[in-house]
Simulated assay, not measured.
Amino acid sequence: MLSPPAARAQQNYPIGPGDVLSVTFLSNSQFNRKVVVGNDGTIFLPFAGELTVAGRTINQLRKDIPVLMTGSVFRERVNGEELLVSISPEEVSVTLAEYRPIFVDGAVNSPGQQPFVVGMNVRQAIAAAKGIKNQFFSADGPDIRVREHPQVLMAELVGVMAEMAVQRALLEGAEDIDPTEIEELNAPPILITSAIELARSQVATTNALLEEELAFLERSVKEAETRVMAALRHEEVMSGIVLSEREEVDQMENLVARGVRPSTLLIQARRLYLQAAERYSGVQADRLSAEDSWRELVLKQNQALREGALQYQQRIQELAQQASQLRVQIDLSTAGLAELDREGEVLGAPRITVFRKLGDQALQIEVTPGTSLLPGDVVHVRFAE
C-alpha cells in the first residue's frame, strides 16, 4: 500500500525527465512546441530559453511559463505590413502531452518498457507484460499450475471485483466505490479490506487527475469565448469606421463634382476608405479564427467526456467476463485441488516491488496488484525463494 507521501505525489504529479510538455500559442501556432524534459530536468522554449521544470507540477508550470513569456515581442506580417506583436499570458497554454514510461521486469513473460496511462495500476502493468511467468510448469512434468488453486483464484477475483468497482465509480462520477460485491466474496477479511482501501485510493487519485484536466479544458473554453466576444466588439467598431469612411468618400465626390473641393482630397478620402476596409477584413479573419478555436475546444471537451464514459463501459464489460470465468474456475478447482509445486507445498503469491524516484528521494515499496503507479516507476516481480 502506498505511503501518504506517495499518495499525495499521485495527486500532485511532479514533472520529471522523459515527460513531454506541449506549449501552445493560441494565436500564433508557428511557435507551438512539444518538448521532452531532459535528464538534467530542463527544457528549452522560445521567448523563455532554458527552464528547469523537474520536480514542479503541471499547474505550477501553467502559471509560471506564460508569465515568463509575457512582454516578449516578435515580428508578424499583416496585410503586407510588418508589425511588432507582444505576447500576453492568456495566449500561452501549457499541457502535459505524454508521461514518461514505466518498466516491468522480473518474473513476467514480456519484461520491458510500457507507456504510462493515467489511473494505471500494478495489475494492468503486469497484464501488459503478458502476465506472471509460471516457473513451476513444463511440458514434460506434471500439470502444475499455481493459478488453479482456489485461494489464488479468489485473490484474483477480489482484485477484478475491486477494479470493476473503481470503473463503475468513475463512470458514474462518484467520489467513492460501492464495496458491496467485494464484501460478499468468500475471501480472507484482510484481503477484502486491502482491496477496498486500494480501490478507494485509486478512485480519489484518478478523479483528482480527471478533474484537473477537465477544469483546464473548461478554463480554455471560457478564455476562447472571451476572445470571440472581444473580436466581435472589434469588428463592430471597425464596421462603423468603414461606414464613416464610405460616407466621407460619397460626400467628397459630391463636393469635387461641384468644384468646391480639389480632386486630391477625394483621392485621399478613397485611400483612407480602402485602408479601413482592409483592416476590417483582417478583423473579420481574426473573429473567424477565434470562433474556430472556440468550437474546437468545445468539441475536445465533449469528446473527452464521451471517450471516458465509453472506456469505462468497455472495461466494466471485460472485467465482468473475467469475474464470471474466475467464479467457474473456483467452483471447478474446489472439487479436486491441483498440486502447487513439485513438493506438494502451497506456493506463495509473487512479491511485487515498485522502485520509484520522487525528487532526490529513491523509494522501494512493497505493493499489491491494485496499487496505483506513477510515471517512471519500475515494477519488479519475483517469487520467494
Rank of each mutant, 00 (worst) to 15 (best):
E385M: 00
I241A: 09
A107K: 11
Q322M: 10
L299T: 13
S244H: 10
L157V: 00
L84D: 14
E296G: 14
A215H: 09
N12V: 03
N109T: 15
L96D: 06
T180W: 05
D377I: 01
L363W: 12
L272A: 15
L157A: 01
A224E: 06
L299S: 14
E197K: 15
I330Q: 01
P369K: 01
A230V: 14
L21G: 03
L337S: 10
R246L: 02
F216I: 03
V92K: 08
G38V: 08
Q314M: 12
F74Q: 08
S29P: 08
V166N: 01
A224H: 03
E172H: 11
E278M: 13
F116C: 13
I87L: 12
I182S: 06
T42C: 07
S22R: 08
L83G: 00
A174V: 01
A231P: 06
R33I: 01
V237W: 00
V67Q: 15
E223K: 13
V73Y: 05
P89D: 06
G359D: 03
E278C: 02
G308P: 13
L217R: 14
G359T: 05
I43Y: 00
A107T: 14
I196C: 05
A323S: 15
G71Y: 11
Y99S: 07
R77A: 03
M252D: 13
E307C: 04
G80K: 01
T226L: 14
V249N: 09
L274M: 05
E98Q: 12
S93E: 07
V85T: 09
V122G: 10
R227H: 07
A125E: 06
F44L: 11
S281I: 02
R351H: 03
L232E: 15
G16M: 04
G112Q: 06
N12H: 13
E318S: 13
V67T: 15
T368F: 01
R227P: 02
A128Y: 11
L266W: 11
M1T: 15
D178Q: 11
L171P: 11
I330P: 10
E278P: 10
T180R: 15
G370F: 07
A290L: 02
L61G: 08
E197C: 01
S22D: 12
